[in-house]
Design a protein around this nucleic acid. Structure first.
Lengths: 243, 243
DNA sequence: CTTGAGGTGTGTACGTCGTACGCAACGAGT
DNA sequence: ACTCGTTGCGTACGACGTACACACCTCAAG
């Protein structure tokens, strides 16, 4: 029996066996650990940097070891999405439905800006992750007692959420463009794109757009634009609520 | 000199040289051709199927030949995005601003549903593609004469557009999930997810959501939800316009 | 007609990705 | 003691984007 493993097993005695468990003493990962590590990588370097190899390395596990806990990369992304939505687990506060929807919208926006890679997960993550259901549930609860039927209540929430995700996605896209072009502020980006812009405008085919470029003074004030848009949307759904 | 190419060049005479120019007589691609081919692939098999190799093969060109026309894959995607926005090149019709915004929203939604891969291009494509500027210009023009300042006018357009992209993205995500699970109708999806859903609801932590699941009768009527949301948003911005 | 040069299309090659597969080590049942 | 399922991991495969160098065609100049 000793001879059977003489060429590799019997030779590594004590010292070698002592230093091996130091690296992976006993793996025993949890899904929460996997999600947290993946989110850290994505926050720091973008979703593309989250590869199974990188993730495993960060967790001190062999690459294929991850497949013991997830079925594939899509699972990892689903875990990531749910993990960041957990940050929104607190109940939304506010005296009335409008206040609740408003702070919920602002918080969702802040969440997306904190984790911009969320916009790239659209393709993979399903909408039934537990913490997202939790958010929907809380918002639905805030609309209770207004005499809305279930369908209308859900549509109200969906409408506000759609606005928030759409608007924030546009802003993230712009921030990404800035980073790609190496611009610090919007003015830098404008400088970089000035020739392209001039070429577009000189065609004379976009007079209204040109006027906006000349006259707009809050072109970079995303917060102002978002809040104005949000108030408009809330006004719009309010009309549905009081009828 | 003949000896220098004896092993490959001199041996191929006439027949071989005759059949070679048949393959690539003169390529001379155009950017429009590249975009059209890429869009076809993406429409049929998704954005992931658009690889430089696949695209080159479809165009009858060597893989690296594409790099004569584009700087990299990001360029291809930017071409694709602009190409499909060209479908929206017609001026939006409608008697008043509200009608123009409404049909424009419906058309944008239809466009995205026709090319669902658009939602995945958020990370790469910049917002300054010519045909997208053209859309913005037309919408701005429709708001002329209402006495709005440039910033508010742009925010109105941005708000409606954000709602449309957000809502349509959610719908596309759902359609993708259905396809992934092999479901034909929403009811199939519900069957597949019934255990997961039951598990979620049995925790008792989402009473409002549970009530919606029980009482909602238009859960799958995306068009109804979208139109209700759109009317709400338009109502909301209308208040800003008439003040 | 020869020759040199510049632009154009192509093939090969590198490093990365997700993940299928099969081997080594281990704990438990006969 | 011997098997056997379970677990952890290394290797390997086929894709990807693209850098790079080479082969070719065309045309100007001699």
């Amino acid at each position: 029996m000793a001879g059977k493993r003489a060429d590799d097993g019997a030779q590594e005695s004590i010292w070698q066996r002592m230093e091996r468990p130091a690296r992976p003493p006993r793996a025993a990962l949890t899904h929460a650990q996997i999600a947290a590590a993946a989110v850290e990588i994505a926050d720091a370097e973008g979703l593309d940097a989250v590869s199974m190899r990188r993730l495993a390395e960060r967790l001190g596990v062999a690459t294929m070891g991850l497949y013991r806990y997830v079925r594939g990369k899509d699972d990892v992304i689903e875990l990531m999405v749910d993990a960041v939505y957990a940050e929104e687990a607190r109940a939304a506060e506010g005296r009335d439905w409008r206040e609740v929807l408003r702070v919920s919208a602002l918080r969702l926006r802040a969440l997306m800006l904190r984790h911009p890679w969320l916009v790239e997960t659209t393709a993979q993550a399903g909408p039934l992750t537990p913490n997202f259901v939790a958010r929907t549930d809380r918002l639905l609860a805030s609309l209770d007692g207004l005499g809305l039927d279930a369908d209308t209540a859900m549509t109200v929430i969906g409408t506000v959420t759609a606005f928030v995700t759409g608007a924030t996605t546009a802003r993230i896209r712009m921030a990404r463009l800035m980073r790609k072009e190496g611009a610090e502020k919007m003015d830098d980006l404008r400088t970089i794109y000035s020739s392209r812009m001039k070429w577009l405008l000189e065609s004379g085919r976009y007079p209204a757009f040109e006027r906006y470029i000349r006259e707009g003074v809050r072109k970079d004030d995303d917060d102002w634009q978002f809040e104005l848009g949000l108030e408009s949307v809330l006004d719009g759904v309010a009309a549905r609520l009081t009828i």
